[in-house]
Amino acid sequence: MESQATTHQSARERPALLRLLDVTVRYAEYCALDSVSLELPLGVTTAIMGPSGCGKTTLLRCAAGLLQPHAGSVELLGVDLARAPDREVTRLRRQMGFVFQHGALWQNMTVRENLLLPLEIHRDELTPAQRRRTVERIAERFDLTHLLHLRPAQLSGGGQKLVAYVRATVLQPRVLFVDEPTTFIDTQAAEVLRSDLRRRIASGCTVVAVTHDAELTALMANRLVVLERGRVLINDRTERVVRTGEPRVHEILRDVLSEAALYDQDILTLLDAGLATDDEPVGHDDAGHDYD
């Protein structure tokens, strides 16, 4: 109840990034999302958490318009992706990035071609040489230059994940959906990724992440959505979730976060320590103007 009230309050305060209304998704007999209604504000970093198989990835795919729900509606930045005309959808896609859990790199292309395609589609004002230079510059930042000529199958799982992240962010999206961004990658690469995410969030990019990474959640998530068996258990500011009286929420957070990373720390204390504090990061409206 509390979460719904907060959701409506947020909606009045800032434009909505995402509105899901009674969304149901089924895989054969299995109900992955069960009448989920959810609203996430623009400019707020959100972490979606929950036990395995609770519908986190399905929720993220629905939110990004990659999966058509069996019932209900999804609006991203005020646009119903299922009904909007092609041009509107393409305009919206230009502003968003999606990092898949297993990378989903295009196997028939090299790493360079994977990174070039978004630029070819959306930045046709650039010459081919400029696009190549852009890719090389970004690859250098992520220490991927030596991998540019390889095919995704020739990369390690972590390498693929990093390339997938770079591909999703090559267009400098306003909204970034990330599914388990730091799994499969080594500590050093995870730190590069976290630091890039921090930089993006600071510059106004809205991040919605499915994650089991306690550090990532603690450092970045202003809002937590906790799912269980295809239903939203709570959707609120991080500090309110941490202090909620719901024992089941605590149980899930402890299980999910400690299972993945920090075995000996009190995760909730970490979250509560004020690392992810207020629901008031820098954002911008539809026209791209900054607002507080």
Binding site: V89, M96, G97, F98, Q107, P118, I121
Partner: peptide
């Protein structure tokens, strides 16, 4: 079919490629 299973098709959609 392999591209569907590997979510490569979704990656095209997410990138704005029909």
């Amino acid at each position: 079919g392999t591209m569907v299973v590997n979510r490569e098709i979704e990656a095209y959609i997410a990138t704005g490629v029909n």
